[in-house]
Design a protein around this nucleic acid. Structure first.
Lengths: 129, 129
DNA sequence: AAGTTTGTTACACTCTGAATATAACAGAAG
DNA sequence: CTTCTGTTATATTCAGAGTGTAACAAACTT
């Protein structure tokens, strides 16, 4: 993955460590990061992006807690896609409930949502062919 | 809508005004609040839930900015479902990209997501028959 | 007409979390 | 042995959340 491509919006109301976490997850989904890959060290990535070491560390910690990163002392931070789908599904459902409720308020039809999901999810699928 | 049914988790890391905003949106989607309905005044609702007036006011302000509430001086806060779908679709797409990326990392298949979307969205549809 | 309720705004305060900075430590790698 | 790693600790600044009190004009109630 080209870590220089990571862009942080410092004017955003979203926390930097959350933006970083999201971009890493997106990087995995788009296969720019692959399972087993080692991420840069917290100091390296912090230097690349231009933020503090602890901010990167927090993003890694969140990803580790979510079961996406596995931080090995010798290999560094490694992508680990395991299968704790049970909790992930529960979490996804709660997030979708709020998201779809607003979509419903905006008169966005189910067909349009299906199209969106299809479009986005397929863009993740194709990339590891 | 039974506003006494609104439950705020004070131990949550999510802001109170955001929890309230989400519950109102969910209330609309599940037809517990209907278009044209007038919401309680900021002081009333604050008294019901047991929070400050300004917190309720902030939730209303967010909903107003999202084009869901229309605050009229004489009629109070009224549900207004208008059609600025263009921006709503863009926003939904960005949120879905992150959400589905994590789902992809968790090996949640597209079929499972479709089932979730169908289940949730239908629970909104049926309620206004 | 008088009193009440409304949304709105303003100011001040506490508290939490985000982000940064600096520093130190043990373990692994060169 | 030196360098780099993750990790932890302490401290600071800053923004936002939440609450409290107060005031105002407009609208409603009686």
């Amino acid at each position: 993955m080209i870590y220089e491509s990571i862009r942080i919006d410092f004017n955003s109301d979203e926390a930097i460590y959350m933006q970083l976490r999201n971009q890493i997850i997106l990087g995995i989904a788009t296969s720019r990061i692959q399972e087993g890959d080692a991420l840069p060290s917290v100091r390296q990535l912090a230097g690349m992006i231009g933020i503090n070491m602890h901010t990167v560390n927090k993003a890694y910690s969140v990803l580790r807690q979510e079961g996406i990163l596995s931080i090995d002392r010798r290999r560094g931070a490694v992508i680990r896609i395991d299968a704790d789908k049970l909790y992930a599904l529960e979490e996804l459902k709660e997030d979708l409930q709020v998201l779809l409720a607003k979509a419903f308020c905006k008169n966005i039809e189910k067909k349009e949502i299906f199209q969106l999901v299809e479009e986005i999810y397929d863009s993740y699928q194709v990339s590891d062919l």
